[in-house]
Write a protein that binds this DNA or RNA. Structure first.
Length: 218
DNA sequence: TCCGAGATTGGCT
DNA sequence: GCCAATCTCGGAT
Protein backbone atom coordinates (compact mmCIF):
# COMPACT_ATOMS: atom_id res chain seq x y z
CA UNK A 1 0.00 0.00 0.00
CA UNK A 2 1.25 3.45 -0.88
CA UNK A 3 1.24 6.26 1.61
CA UNK A 4 -2.06 8.10 1.70
CA UNK A 5 -2.62 11.70 2.59
CA UNK A 6 -5.33 11.76 5.24
CA UNK A 7 -6.59 14.99 6.76
CA UNK A 8 -9.41 15.53 9.18
CA UNK A 9 -11.93 18.11 7.96
CA UNK A 10 -11.58 21.34 9.90
CA UNK A 11 -13.96 24.09 10.90
CA UNK A 12 -13.15 26.12 7.78
CA UNK A 13 -14.53 23.35 5.55
CA UNK A 14 -17.98 23.61 7.13
CA UNK A 15 -18.07 27.41 7.02
CA UNK A 16 -18.28 27.30 3.23
CA UNK A 17 -21.61 27.77 1.47
CA UNK A 18 -24.02 24.92 1.96
CA UNK A 19 -24.10 23.60 -1.62
CA UNK A 20 -20.30 23.47 -1.71
CA UNK A 21 -20.17 21.54 1.55
CA UNK A 22 -22.80 19.09 0.27
CA UNK A 23 -20.81 18.44 -2.92
CA UNK A 24 -17.43 18.26 -1.22
CA UNK A 25 -18.57 15.80 1.45
CA UNK A 26 -18.99 13.12 -1.23
CA UNK A 27 -16.12 10.65 -1.06
CA UNK A 28 -15.09 11.80 2.41
CA UNK A 29 -14.71 9.23 5.18
CA UNK A 30 -16.97 9.44 8.22
CA UNK A 31 -15.34 7.83 11.25
CA UNK A 32 -17.05 6.85 14.49
CA UNK A 33 -15.37 5.64 17.66
CA UNK A 34 -17.77 3.59 19.73
CA UNK A 35 -16.90 1.25 22.61
CA UNK A 36 -13.28 1.41 21.54
CA UNK A 37 -14.13 0.26 18.01
CA UNK A 38 -13.61 2.30 14.85
CA UNK A 39 -16.34 2.41 12.21
CA UNK A 40 -15.59 3.91 8.81
CA UNK A 41 -17.98 4.81 5.97
CA UNK A 42 -17.68 6.79 2.75
CA UNK A 43 -20.31 9.47 2.19
CA UNK A 44 -22.04 8.81 -1.15
CA UNK A 45 -25.23 10.92 -1.11
CA UNK A 46 -26.08 14.31 0.42
CA UNK A 47 -28.68 17.07 0.21
CA UNK A 48 -28.23 20.78 0.88
CA UNK A 49 -30.83 22.77 2.82
CA UNK A 50 -30.65 26.54 2.92
CA UNK A 51 -31.93 28.80 5.67
CA UNK A 52 -33.25 32.32 6.13
CA UNK A 53 -36.31 31.70 3.95
CA UNK A 54 -34.35 30.91 0.78
CA UNK A 55 -35.43 27.29 0.73
CA UNK A 56 -38.94 26.25 1.73
CA UNK A 57 -37.85 22.60 1.90
CA UNK A 58 -35.78 23.27 5.02
CA UNK A 59 -37.25 22.65 8.46
CA UNK A 60 -35.68 25.86 9.63
CA UNK A 61 -36.54 28.13 6.69
CA UNK A 62 -39.09 30.04 8.76
CA UNK A 63 -36.80 30.48 11.72
CA UNK A 64 -35.53 28.35 14.54
CA UNK A 65 -37.40 26.28 17.11
CA UNK A 66 -36.18 24.22 20.02
CA UNK A 67 -35.74 21.30 17.66
CA UNK A 68 -33.66 23.22 15.12
CA UNK A 69 -31.80 25.64 17.41
CA UNK A 70 -28.40 24.08 16.66
CA UNK A 71 -28.67 25.40 13.08
CA UNK A 72 -27.74 28.80 14.47
CA UNK A 73 -24.34 27.48 15.60
CA UNK A 74 -21.22 27.49 13.44
CA UNK A 75 -20.62 24.95 10.68
CA UNK A 76 -19.65 21.47 11.82
CA UNK A 77 -22.26 21.07 14.54
CA UNK A 78 -24.44 17.96 14.28
CA UNK A 79 -28.20 18.37 13.79
CA UNK A 80 -30.29 15.24 14.18
CA UNK A 81 -34.06 15.23 13.93
CA UNK A 82 -36.53 12.41 14.35
CA UNK A 83 -39.27 11.77 11.85
CA UNK A 84 -42.34 9.51 11.77
CA UNK A 85 -41.66 8.83 15.40
CA UNK A 86 -39.09 6.11 14.81
CA UNK A 87 -36.51 7.37 12.33
CA UNK A 88 -33.64 9.82 12.71
CA UNK A 89 -31.89 11.91 10.07
CA UNK A 90 -28.30 13.10 10.42
CA UNK A 91 -27.29 16.59 9.28
CA UNK A 92 -24.21 18.77 9.57
CA UNK A 93 -24.63 22.51 10.08
CA UNK A 94 -22.91 24.84 7.60
CA UNK A 95 -21.92 28.52 7.54
CA UNK A 96 -20.72 30.71 10.39
CA UNK A 97 -22.60 31.21 13.64
CA UNK A 98 -25.87 33.08 13.09
CA UNK A 99 -26.24 31.95 9.46
CA UNK A 100 -28.46 28.98 8.68
CA UNK A 101 -27.74 25.98 6.49
CA UNK A 102 -27.36 22.22 6.78
CA UNK A 103 -26.36 19.16 4.78
CA UNK A 104 -28.33 15.94 5.16
CA UNK A 105 -26.30 12.74 4.86
CA UNK A 106 -28.58 10.49 2.82
CA UNK A 107 -26.41 7.44 2.19
CA UNK A 108 -22.97 6.01 2.89
CA UNK A 109 -20.90 3.04 1.78
CA UNK A 110 -19.77 1.05 4.84
CA UNK A 111 -16.05 0.26 4.81
CA UNK A 112 -15.73 -2.07 7.79
CA UNK A 113 -17.61 -3.86 10.60
CA UNK A 114 -20.39 -4.92 8.23
CA UNK A 115 -21.48 -7.68 10.61
CA UNK A 116 -22.21 -5.21 13.40
CA UNK A 117 -24.10 -2.88 11.10
CA UNK A 118 -26.10 -5.86 9.90
CA UNK A 119 -27.14 -6.73 13.43
CA UNK A 120 -28.08 -3.14 14.22
CA UNK A 121 -30.37 -3.03 11.18
CA UNK A 122 -31.94 -6.47 11.20
CA UNK A 123 -31.50 -7.73 14.78
CA UNK A 124 -30.40 -11.10 13.53
CA UNK A 125 -26.98 -12.73 13.13
CA UNK A 126 -24.87 -12.33 10.03
CA UNK A 127 -25.44 -15.70 8.35
CA UNK A 128 -25.41 -16.07 4.56
CA UNK A 129 -26.54 -12.47 3.98
CA UNK A 130 -27.92 -11.54 0.59
CA UNK A 131 -26.31 -8.83 -1.51
CA UNK A 132 -29.57 -6.90 -1.32
CA UNK A 133 -29.42 -6.92 2.47
CA UNK A 134 -25.91 -5.49 2.45
CA UNK A 135 -26.84 -2.62 0.12
CA UNK A 136 -29.93 -2.02 2.24
CA UNK A 137 -27.82 -1.41 5.34
CA UNK A 138 -27.06 2.23 4.64
CA UNK A 139 -28.70 3.33 1.36
CA UNK A 140 -31.12 5.83 2.94
CA UNK A 141 -30.90 8.61 5.53
CA UNK A 142 -32.65 6.73 8.34
CA UNK A 143 -31.08 3.39 7.41
CA UNK A 144 -27.67 5.00 7.79
CA UNK A 145 -28.46 6.35 11.27
CA UNK A 146 -29.92 3.01 12.38
CA UNK A 147 -26.92 1.04 11.18
CA UNK A 148 -24.51 3.28 13.09
CA UNK A 149 -26.68 4.06 16.11
CA UNK A 150 -26.57 7.81 15.44
CA UNK A 151 -29.24 8.88 17.92
CA UNK A 152 -30.33 12.37 18.76
CA UNK A 153 -29.60 11.78 22.43
CA UNK A 154 -25.96 10.84 21.86
CA UNK A 155 -24.93 13.09 19.00
CA UNK A 156 -27.18 16.17 18.75
CA UNK A 157 -25.12 19.33 19.05
CA UNK A 158 -21.65 17.76 18.90
CA UNK A 159 -19.08 19.62 16.80
CA UNK A 160 -17.80 17.14 14.23
CA UNK A 161 -14.59 19.17 13.87
CA UNK A 162 -13.86 18.93 17.60
CA UNK A 163 -15.04 15.51 18.79
CA UNK A 164 -13.12 12.37 19.72
CA UNK A 165 -16.14 10.20 18.95
CA UNK A 166 -17.07 11.31 15.44
CA UNK A 167 -15.16 13.06 12.67
CA UNK A 168 -14.73 13.20 8.90
CA UNK A 169 -11.50 12.66 6.98
CA UNK A 170 -10.35 13.52 3.49
CA UNK A 171 -8.56 10.54 1.95
CA UNK A 172 -7.99 12.28 -1.36
CA UNK A 173 -10.86 10.49 -3.10
CA UNK A 174 -12.27 12.49 -6.03
CA UNK A 175 -15.57 10.88 -7.00
CA UNK A 176 -17.68 11.35 -10.13
CA UNK A 177 -20.52 13.57 -8.84
CA UNK A 178 -24.07 13.94 -10.17
CA UNK A 179 -26.92 16.09 -8.91
CA UNK A 180 -30.70 15.96 -9.00
CA UNK A 181 -33.79 17.38 -7.35
CA UNK A 182 -34.35 16.44 -3.74
CA UNK A 183 -37.08 13.93 -2.95
CA UNK A 184 -40.10 14.15 -0.68
CA UNK A 185 -40.16 17.92 -0.63
CA UNK A 186 -43.36 18.30 -2.68
CA UNK A 187 -44.66 20.95 -0.30
CA UNK A 188 -41.69 23.24 -0.92
CA UNK A 189 -43.15 25.29 -3.80
CA UNK A 190 -40.38 26.78 -5.98
CA UNK A 191 -37.75 24.92 -3.94
CA UNK A 192 -39.07 21.58 -5.23
CA UNK A 193 -36.83 21.84 -8.27
CA UNK A 194 -33.64 23.07 -6.61
CA UNK A 195 -30.87 20.66 -7.74
CA UNK A 196 -29.46 20.30 -4.24
CA UNK A 197 -29.10 16.55 -4.07
CA UNK A 198 -25.63 15.22 -4.77
CA UNK A 199 -24.42 11.67 -5.12
CA UNK A 200 -21.52 9.60 -6.40
CA UNK A 201 -22.33 8.41 -9.90
CA UNK A 202 -22.65 4.65 -10.09
CA UNK A 203 -22.22 3.96 -6.39
CA UNK A 204 -24.52 1.12 -5.41
CA UNK A 205 -25.32 2.57 -2.00
CA UNK A 206 -26.99 5.66 -3.46
CA UNK A 207 -30.67 5.41 -2.58
CA UNK A 208 -32.94 4.06 -5.29
CA UNK A 209 -35.34 6.95 -5.12
CA UNK A 210 -32.60 9.28 -6.24
CA UNK A 211 -32.03 7.24 -9.36
CA UNK A 212 -35.72 7.54 -10.19
CA UNK A 213 -35.59 11.22 -9.46
CA UNK A 214 -32.63 11.65 -11.79
CA UNK A 215 -34.72 10.44 -14.73
CA UNK A 216 -37.35 13.04 -13.93
CA UNK A 217 -34.88 15.84 -13.61
CA UNK A 218 -32.68 15.46 -16.67
C1' DT B 1 -36.31 -8.26 -10.10
C1' DC B 2 -38.75 -3.92 -10.08
C1' DC B 3 -42.13 -0.61 -8.71
C1' DG B 4 -46.14 1.55 -6.35
C1' DA B 5 -49.52 1.75 -2.69
C1' DG B 6 -50.58 1.61 2.07
C1' DA B 7 -49.51 1.41 7.04
C1' DT B 8 -46.72 2.86 10.37
C1' DT B 9 -45.46 6.44 14.32
C1' DG B 10 -44.63 10.21 17.74
C1' DG B 11 -42.29 14.73 18.15
C1' DC B 12 -43.10 19.06 16.70
C1' DT B 13 -45.91 23.24 15.55
C1' DG C 1 -52.52 17.81 11.68
C1' DC C 2 -48.01 17.60 9.45
C1' DC C 3 -43.84 15.04 8.14
C1' DA C 4 -36.39 15.73 4.44
C1' DA C 5 -38.63 7.58 5.68
C1' DT C 6 -38.96 2.67 5.76
C1' DC C 7 -41.06 -1.79 5.38
C1' DT C 8 -44.06 -5.15 3.41
C1' DC C 9 -46.70 -6.99 0.06
C1' DG C 10 -48.85 -7.56 -4.34
C1' DG C 11 -48.83 -7.11 -9.26
C1' DA C 12 -46.13 -6.14 -13.39
C1' DT C 13 -42.00 -7.01 -16.10
Amino acid sequence: MGKRRVARLKKSFFLQDTVTVARELLGKILTLIKDGKEYRAMIVETEAYLGNGADKAAHFSKGLTNRTRIINESGGHIYIYSIYGVYQCFNIVTLKEGEHGAVLIRAVEPLNRIEELYFNRYKKPFESPEKREIINLTNGPAKFTMAYGLTKGEYYGLDITDSERIFIEDHGIEPDISCSRRVNVDYAEEAIDFPYRFYIEGNEYVSRVSQLDKKNYF
